[in-house]
Computed example of a mutant assay.
Amino acid sequence: MYKFTAGFPEGKKFGLVKQLRRASISIPSNIAEGASREWAKNFSRFLEIAMSSCYEIETQILIANDLGFLNEKNLNELQLTLEAIIKMTLKFRFTLKKAV
């Protein structure tokens, strides 16, 4: 995300850029924090929070594209990456729920 937002207009550094970077860091951070929990139910909750960050990013990159900060190629690349992360996280969460 840092690579994609580096070229955003300077005036957006404390708005959209900050939100995108924060949400992108939130995904692996919540997965890591959830992995430290003793029970699968707790881990599943952290995966849910990570998923929320994915959807937050999805909305924000669409806004960035609408504003002309992202080109279609970068938008598509980010959407594909998000889609893969969402699928992996959903499958992992489903597996945890079956284990409980």
Rank of each mutant, 00 (worst) to 15 (best):
M1A: 11
Y2I: 13
Y2G: 05
Y2F: 07
G7V: 04
G7A: 09
F8C: 13
F8M: 05
F8Y: 08
P9Y: 01
E10G: 01
G11L: 04
K12V: 04
K12Y: 04
K13P: 06
F14S: 07
V17A: 09
V17I: 14
Q19L: 13
Q19Y: 03
R21Q: 15
R22S: 12
A23H: 01
A23P: 07
S24P: 06
S24H: 01
I25W: 11
I25C: 13
I27Q: 05
P28R: 06
P28H: 08
S29A: 14
E33R: 10
G34K: 02
A35H: 13
A35I: 01
S36K: 15
R37M: 09
R37T: 05
R37H: 03
R37K: 14
E38Y: 07
E38K: 10
W39D: 02
A40P: 05
N42P: 00
S44K: 14
R45H: 12
R45Q: 10
R45V: 12
F46V: 02
F46K: 05
F46R: 01
L47I: 04
L47G: 06
E48A: 12
A50D: 00
M51L: 15
S53G: 08
Y55P: 02
Y55M: 06
E56T: 07
I57K: 06
I57S: 03
E58N: 14
T59F: 00
T59M: 08
T59N: 14
T59P: 01
Q60P: 00
I61M: 07
I61L: 10
L62M: 07
L62Q: 12
N65E: 12
D66G: 13
L67V: 01
L70M: 06
N71D: 15
N71V: 08
N71W: 02
E72Q: 15
E72L: 07
E72Y: 06
K73R: 09
N74L: 09
L78W: 03
L78A: 04
Q79V: 05
Q79E: 02
L80G: 14
L82Y: 06
L82T: 01
L82S: 06
A84R: 12
A84Q: 15
K87D: 05
K87S: 14
K87P: 00
T89A: 15
L90M: 11
L90Q: 14
F92E: 10
F92R: 09
F92Y: 11
R93W: 00
F94C: 12
F94N: 15
T95W: 04
L96D: 03
K98S: 13
K98C: 09
K98E: 15
A99Q: 14
